[in-house]
Amino acid sequence: MNLFRLLGDMTHLLCIVVLLLKIRTRKSCAGISLKTQELYVIVFLTRYLDLFTMYNSLYQIVMKLVFVGTSIGIVWYMRYHKVVKQTYSKNEDTFRHYFLILPCFVLALFVHLDFTVVEVLWSFSLYLEAVAILPQLVLLQRSRNIDTLTGDYVFLLGVYRVLYLLNWVYRFFMEIHQIRWIPWVSGFIQTALYADFFYYYIKSWKNREKLKLPA
């Protein structure tokens, strides 16, 4: 475990806490894409199948349970909580995210480490996580005014991915000395999708103005 990876996991945890706080304290999920959150539930459930079979460390078990639990909790709030579900931007959150699931699954059937259920679903979850942010980014482009917590949430998600890239660079030179194509290529593509959001987020932060993404 290197510092980049620990910081990456902590940042990921932080952005989930920011989102849960926004939903619980403001009883609002305005500007948050339910489709992205649902994709994250699928990502975690398909990635952490080995939760009880492969023991890595207590840290892994706790973090996996937290990620699965919080992601399901967020979807529950947005779908079923009587107050929060009224604030869901249903009309703007129109990205057909089911069109993301099938291609990722087909790709996982062809590109995986082993043709076993765990490995194919593990690859599927990496490919799906790479594109899961798309509905959220599209929703941000459609939102007239993006509230700060939503912008912060997406920014922290991006920071977590950048830290994971740094973690892989570190592990390549210091530990593994070989390339892990599936997680690293998926992760690189995922991080690249945040590039223009980062540009507009940092620009709005520097100019002290409201975050606005071009449509």
Partner: peptide, 10 residues
Amino acid sequence: DPESKAHDEL
């Protein structure tokens, strides 16, 4: 082998 350790991250 290292590849099977590929699941050592979250």
